[in-house]
């Protein structure tokens, strides 16, 4: 059978898909907190912006994450303070940032990474990418997927750990176009 074609998420998804984040009176199925304080593992924050071809921040994107826990397991319903899926729109933070609270995933087959799905007005189909981590240099260098990506584009898949003592905060910006266009995947 032919797959149903994709259509853009459009500018008005928030009250349907991320209602509580945007202050609408409707419960949401998930949010940007994959890990509560009780979750086992290395707690991290991932934040960033989505930039268009003119380097302007996109204020109507929705980002979804899907990732393993610290034991490499995928958790569909929040258990022991962790769930593998999260969502965040870029329209509620004054800098148009998304911000996820999660834990660093584990991956027995290579470098740890998080799957990212990107939706916004102006793309007809969602885009997939991945977040790897700047402080996993050894694992990244040995990872067969990362190594097949051209050297000058590889950095677009790697979240940079920001300096600071208290929390592990990583910055991961998504560039839709331009010199630093993010590597997107035929996933």
């Amino acid at each position: 059978m032919t797959q149903t074609p994709s259509q853009t998420i459009g500018p008005y998804f928030a009250y349907g898909l991320t209602p509580q984040q945007y202050g609408y009176d409707h419960n949401e199925i998930c949010n940007s907190r994959l890990a509560d304080a009780s979750a086992e593992g290395e707690h991290i924050i991932i934040k960033g912006i989505v930039l268009d071809g003119k380097n302007q921040p996109v204020n109507d994107a929705m980002i979804e994450l899907w990732q393993a826990n610290s034991k490499g397991e995928f958790i569909q319903t929040k258990k022991d303070g962790f769930v593998s899926f999260g969502r965040c729109g870029t329209g509620t933070n004054h800098d148009n940032q998304f911000e996820f609270h999660t834990i660093k995933p584990s991956n027995s087959e290579g470098a740890p990474y998080i799957n990212v799905i990107v939706f916004m007005r102006g793309i007809l189909s969602h885009m997939y990418t991945r977040i790897y981590f700047s402080d996993e240099e050894q694992a990244n260098n040995a990872d067969s997927f990362l190594q097949q990506i051209e050297t000058n584009r590889r950095h677009t898949l790697i979240a940079n750990k920001l300096p600071g003592d208290d929390l592990n905060v990583y910055e991961f910006n998504i560039n839709m176009q331009g010199q630093n266009e993010t590597v997107f995947l035929d996933c």
């Binding site: 071809g53 302007q56 916004m120 793309i123 990506i149 839709m176 176009q177 266009e181 590597v183 997107f184």
Partner: peptide, 11 residues
């Protein structure tokens, strides 16, 4: 301005 220009990488 929003659609990626580089080919998608198969995984």
């Amino acid at each position: 301005l929003r659609t990626p220009k580089q080919p998608l990488i198969p995984v």
